[in-house]
Each structure stands twice: as C-alpha cells, then as structure tokens.
Amino acid sequence: MKKSLLFIASILFMLSSCKEGSADKTERSGEPDVYNVEDDNAKMNQAMVDAKNSIDEFKNALVSDNPSFEYFTIKQKFNADGGDEHIWVGDIQLIDNDFMGIIANEPVYTNKVQLGDTITVNRANISDWMYYDDGKVVGGYTIRVIRDGLSPEEKAQFDAENGLIFK
C-alpha cells in the first residue's frame, strides 16, 4: 500500500490537484504543481462528466484481480474558499460498494482533508479516475485535457518527467 502511494505521488507531479475558479498553475517549492482550471472550462467539465459516467469501468477493473492493472486512483472534489479543489485519492479499495483510499496529494486550498488521510470517496464528487494497464494510463480524463493543452515541447517534457504512457 505504501509503495503504490509513494509511486503515485512521485509520478503525478503535475496532477497534484486542480482548483476551479482560477487560471494557470500554482508552483510550490518541493511540492507538485497545482494546475488551476476555470470552472467554465468546457473540455475539463466534459472530462469530469465522462469520468463520473464511466466509474463502473474503474470499479470492474479494480475487482478484476487482473495482474496487469495497478495504481488505482480517484480524483475527488473538495470544497475550498474561493472554489473547489480536486485531489487524488490513492490506494483505492472497494469496501461494501464504497471506494476507500488515502489522500495522495498535499491540499493547497481546502482544509477538509490532509495528505495521508483515509477517506470514503464521495461518488457525487468524483472528478476523475485512473489506473495502469500494463504500464499505460487508463482513464485520466482530466490529465488528458491538461496534457492536450500543452505545446509540443511542454508535452514532451511532461511525458519525459513523469513517465505516463497513455493508451
């Protein structure tokens, strides 16, 4: 459990969290960047709808016991002053049809949770999910929106720095 949490934290440098109601990114010394997205961003809003609508795909993969599937994470929205913050929850387990996991990123804007807290995911507030299938990202809808908005040079740097491979 600890191994996967550390792995996720180390590779998701740019996916730390997202805050609605802002623009650009917040850089933090020694911490992952936080990408701020306007809450009226149509592509990001559609990505969150797509993620929420496909959560059963995530659930089926989680319970499949497929050895090629690993590093299951869900991004959940938390209330914060001035907007909402979307934070990754790692080490996901399914317990009595509820997703439970550990806050995998240091929150910037919300005080509702802290890094390392164990929570039950609020399904109504799911904004993304992802896992690896043989080393390739499945899901990651909001990540793809951010990545697709990068210049070719930034995209190459992003890919080189975090090692994410998209299906």
Rank of each mutant, 00 (worst) to 15 (best):
S4I: 11
S4F: 08
L5G: 03
L5R: 05
F7D: 09
I8R: 03
S10L: 09
I11S: 07
L12Q: 12
F13Q: 13
F13K: 14
L15A: 13
L15C: 15
L15W: 12
K19I: 13
E20H: 07
A23K: 13
A23Q: 12
E27N: 10
R28D: 10
S29N: 13
D33N: 14
D33Y: 13
V37S: 09
E38C: 09
D39V: 01
D40Y: 13
N41D: 15
K43T: 03
M44C: 06
M44T: 05
N45W: 00
D50I: 00
A51G: 13
A51E: 00
K52P: 01
N53R: 08
N53F: 03
S54T: 14
S54W: 02
S54E: 11
I55M: 15
I55Q: 07
E57Y: 12
K59I: 06
V63E: 07
S64F: 05
D65A: 10
D65C: 06
N66W: 03
P67C: 04
P67A: 07
S68A: 11
F69A: 04
F69R: 05
T73P: 00
I74F: 10
I74N: 06
K77T: 01
F78M: 02
G82Y: 00
E85N: 00
H86R: 10
H86I: 07
W88N: 06
W88A: 08
V89H: 09
V89N: 07
V89K: 04
D91I: 03
I92K: 10
Q93V: 11
D98F: 13
G101W: 01
G101D: 05
G101R: 05
G101V: 07
G101Y: 09
I103W: 05
A104Q: 11
N105Q: 14
E106T: 14
P107C: 09
P107L: 02
Y109N: 01
V113G: 01
V113D: 00
Q114H: 14
Q114C: 11
L115R: 13
G116E: 06
D117K: 04
D117V: 05
T120G: 04
T120L: 04
A124H: 04
A124L: 09
N125R: 05
N125Q: 07
W129M: 10
M130V: 02
Y132Q: 08
D134I: 02
K136F: 04
K136G: 00
V138H: 06
G140M: 01
G140N: 02
G140I: 01
R144Q: 15
R147I: 04
R147M: 06
G149R: 04
G149N: 15
L150G: 08
L150D: 06
S151H: 11
E153N: 02
E154Q: 15
K155D: 10
K155Q: 15
F158M: 10
F158W: 15
A160M: 07
A160D: 06
E161C: 05
G163M: 08
G163R: 08
L164H: 06
